[in-house]
Amino acid sequence: MTAKASTANDITAADLETFLYDEADLLDSWRLEDWLELFLPDGTYEVPTTDAPDGSPDTALHFVADTMTVLKGRVGRLMSPDGYAESPPARTRRFISNVRLLEADSGTIRLAANFMIARMKKGAQDMFIGHYDHLLKVVDDGELRYQRRRSVLDLEALRPQRSVSIII
């Protein structure tokens, strides 16, 4: 999106903030097909379970552990009239803060940030609280792209939040 840099070493924390804020806008306005463009072709989207936040998708059960094939299917479902959990879509609003650039070695950027995502639908207001542990790369045109988008919930359980039917 707006970050323009030639290498990972040129990226600043401010670039990362801009990237996350723009992403939040895409998600809250349900422009999910545009959001998919933020991923590398071999990118992943992960949400570990609340009792195994450090688990690997290969050895621990997750809420979400999408390859790009699955993530494209997820977005297709979320935008489809028969993706019933989010059709009609919930209102969501994301608050992202404490954005930090942890590492920018060997071309990969490790980003940490905190999030609060409110989901409102049918009289229920659910708050998803957690932190991001993302890996990003800078592609040829200077844009940031997800290698791994990992949303770690700080909730003790999805109770009463019920499901992660939205992108968190």
């Binding site: 949400v47 998708p57 290969d58 050895t59 621990a60 059960l61 997750h62 809420f63 979400v64 552990a65 999408d66 390859t67 699955v70 299917g73 997820r74 479902r77 993706g83 019933y84 959990a85 989010e86 999805l158 019920r162 499901s163 992660v164 039917s165």
Partner: peptide, 23 residues
């Protein structure tokens, strides 16, 4: 790994089916 990915995709509250059941 394949077993767990299949589970995540279909069977949980972040999967492609359970959220619709809850709805």
């Amino acid at each position: 790994s394949r077993r767990l990915h299949a589970f995540n995709t279909f069977l949980g509250p972040g999967g492609f089916a359970t959220p619709d059941d809850i709805e």
